[in-house]
């Protein structure tokens, strides 16, 4: 049963990634926007090198948060028109598979986005990576948490006319702990802070687990109607 669940999830993710590959919205629009956010921060802080270096982990996650919200938005916008939602419901996929598949596709797109953002942060804000393993673990787990949460709230605002404004309002307060934990862990990974980073990875793992469980339960009722 689990193999079937994951197999169907992979099919859903493949479909979403194929749409992305053909339209290139994340690559051509969202990634440049994420980089733009980082550049704008430099304007805001008057290009103060030490300030930007100190704030780099937080600024990275703020970039992920804004750009990631757009990725989630996009992921559910493609399901909106022409009765596609109904088609998805009639497809026979379990709600759990739809949930995990949508989240997986968002996750992959976000990882590509983050690779670009991290390069931007290292180059623009002059930070050095002192613990690559911590960096990778934090971004992978934090991003998984973000993608899973995003999939729940994306479905919650699916098919609603005010979706564009509703989704950020719902999503950002909920992913605030990911931003918080991710920033603190990256501070340690960049060698900016001497405080323990791995504990935050533990917290991010718990949050990710909680939202995976909630999504598996809640996605069914969310997709039932529209």
């Amino acid at each position: 049963m689990i193999a079937e669940l994951l197999g169907d999830a992979a099919r859903v993710a493949r479909k979403d990634l194929l749409i992305e590959w053909r339209t290139r919205v994340t690559i051509n629009q969202v990634i440049p926007l994420g980089l733009l956010v980082e550049v704008v921060f430099a304007f805001a802080f008057d290009a103060n090198r030490s300030l930007l270096e100190q704030g780099a982990p937080g600024l990275f996650w703020v970039g992920v948060l804004f750009a990631g919200t757009l990725v989630v938005q996009r992921s559910f916008t493609v399901e909106g028109p022409e009765g596609i939602t109904d088609a998805l419901r009639l497809s026979g996929f379990r709600p759990g598979s739809l949930f995990l598949g949508k989240a997986a596709a968002v996750f992959v797109e976000l990882v590509v986005l983050e690779a670009a953002l991290l390069t931007g942060v290292v180059v623009l804000f002059d930070v050095a990576v002192s613990d690559p393993l911590l960096l990778v673990s934090t971004t992978v787990i934090g991003t998984a948490g973000f993608a899973l949460t995003g999939a729940i709230y994306g479905a919650l605002s699916l098919g609603v006319r005010v979706r564009e404004t509703l989704l950020p309002l719902l999503l950002i307060p909920v992913v605030a702990p990911i931003l918080l934990g991710g920033s603190r862990a990256l501070e340690a990974a960049f060698g900016i802070s001497t405080q323990p980073g791995w504990n935050w990875v533990g917290i991010l793992t718990v949050i990710t687990g909680v939202y995976a469980a909630i999504g598996l339960v809640a996605f069914g009722p969310l997709m039932e109607e529209s």
């Binding site: 729940i152 919650l156 719902l170 307060p173 909920v174 605030a176 702990p177 918080l180 934990g181 917290i203 949050i207 909680v210 909630i214 809640a218 009722p221 969310l222 039932e224 109607e225």
Partner: peptide
């Protein structure tokens, strides 16, 4: 239905936010 789910999600989220903060 969506509002009800959102209310429960918000309630679940309170301890997570509180703990991390």
């Amino acid at each position: 239905r969506r509002a009800a789910i959102a209310a429960l999600l918000a309630a679940v989220n309170i301890p997570i936010v509180h703990f991390s903060v």
